[in-house]
């Protein structure tokens, strides 16, 4: 059993209905790299991989990328905070190896 951390990313469609576009996940005992489950070519996902996100939690202008693991996950909710695009808090679940 391994602990997995994950964040869901949502967008609003043209009828203002929310839909999940990706899940960013990281296994506790793994490589510490965040993997993306969902459409890897969605503009929001591509933009994250290319530009990274600010470290809002620590109030610094440093950039974080999927390789930064949990820090990256923790900051997704600040990066996507409008409702047009929004991210969940970091959630946890156990998975079978």
């Amino acid at each position: 059993m391994t602990l997995m951390y994950f964040v869901d990313l949502f967008e609003l469609d043209s009828e203002a209905k929310q839909k999940k576009i990706a899940t960013f996940k990281m296994e506790e005992d793994g490589s510490n790299r965040v993997e993306v489950e969902g459409d890897p070519y969605h503009p929001a996902v591509e933009n994250l991989k290319g530009e990274g996100i600010f470290d809002y939690k620590n109030a610094t202008p440093n950039k974080l990328y999927p390789d930064d693991g949990l820090s990256f996950l923790e900051n997704l909710k600040y990066n996507f905070r409008s409702g047009y695009l929004s991210a969940s808090d970091v959630q946890k679940k156990t998975v079978d190896n």
Partner: peptide, 17 residues
Amino acid sequence: LGGSAVTAMVTFQDGNK
């Protein structure tokens, strides 16, 4: 709504959200 910063979509009588 799913997400941390926003929690609901509200619809008004006139259709605005």
